[in-house]
């Protein structure tokens, strides 16, 4: 076989492979356009899901982005880590308190005695598909807290942004 023929075959092969990848990626982006738009514009992932109709009567926690959160000081907000305590001990946002979603009912009375209802709370968990922060925020709102936000990017977005992480108890 001569070289020009082989070269033409190689170019055709690579072109077809690139077309397969490009076409599939375009379809994937088109199907997930809403999710990707939310992520790129700094909104929380899954915010559309969280604001489904039917839950209009219940107060919904407001999302807070990484940029907004990193601009706030520890005096302005109380950070709450909704993950299991083992994950909290491995690493958490600076000055965050551990309040696992699974323990909220047993700890809510003590928490309410310690933290005034007018305080701003920011709840986070493992980001992405993790719902614990949203559920905890809803429970805290039902318990009377007026300003509860959810940082849905959670620990992964914070860590990947290169921001400081604390280990162990604060």
């Amino acid at each position: 076989m001569n070289k020009p023929f082989l070269r033409k075959q190689l170019i055709t092969l690579l072109r077809d492979a690139a077309l397969i990848v490009a076409l599939a990626m375009l379809v994937g982006m088109a199907v997930n356009i809403r999710l990707l738009w939310n992520i790129w514009s700094g909104q929380i992932p899954g915010s559309a899901v969280l604001n489904e109709p039917g839950s209009e009567n219940e107060p919904l926690p407001m999302p807070i982005s990484l940029a907004e959160l990193s601009d706030l000081s520890a005096d302005e907000v109380l950070l709450l880590d909704a993950r299991h305590v083992d994950l909290y001990l491995q690493g958490h946002l600076p000055a965050a308190r551990s309040l696992p979603w699974g323990e909220i009912e047993s700890r809510l009375d003590d928490f309410r005695r310690e933290v005034p209802l007018h305080n701003t709370l920011v709840v986070y968990c493992s980001g992405y598909g993790c719902e614990d922060s949203f559920l905890l925020a809803q429970r805290l709102m039902a318990a009377g807290y007026e300003d509860v936000r959810v940082f849905e990017g959670g620990m992964p977005e914070w860590r990947d942004a290169g921001l400081p992480v604390e280990k162990g108890q604060p």
């Binding site: 990626m25 379809v27 994937g28 199907v31 992405y128 992964p156 942004a161």
Partner: peptide, 16 residues
């Protein structure tokens, strides 16, 4: 990967 790219890969890789 950085945070946002995880979502881009998750949105496109299954289609590829």
């Amino acid at each position: 990967l950085p945070y946002r790219l995880n979502f881009l890969v998750a949105a496109t890789l299954p289609f590829v």
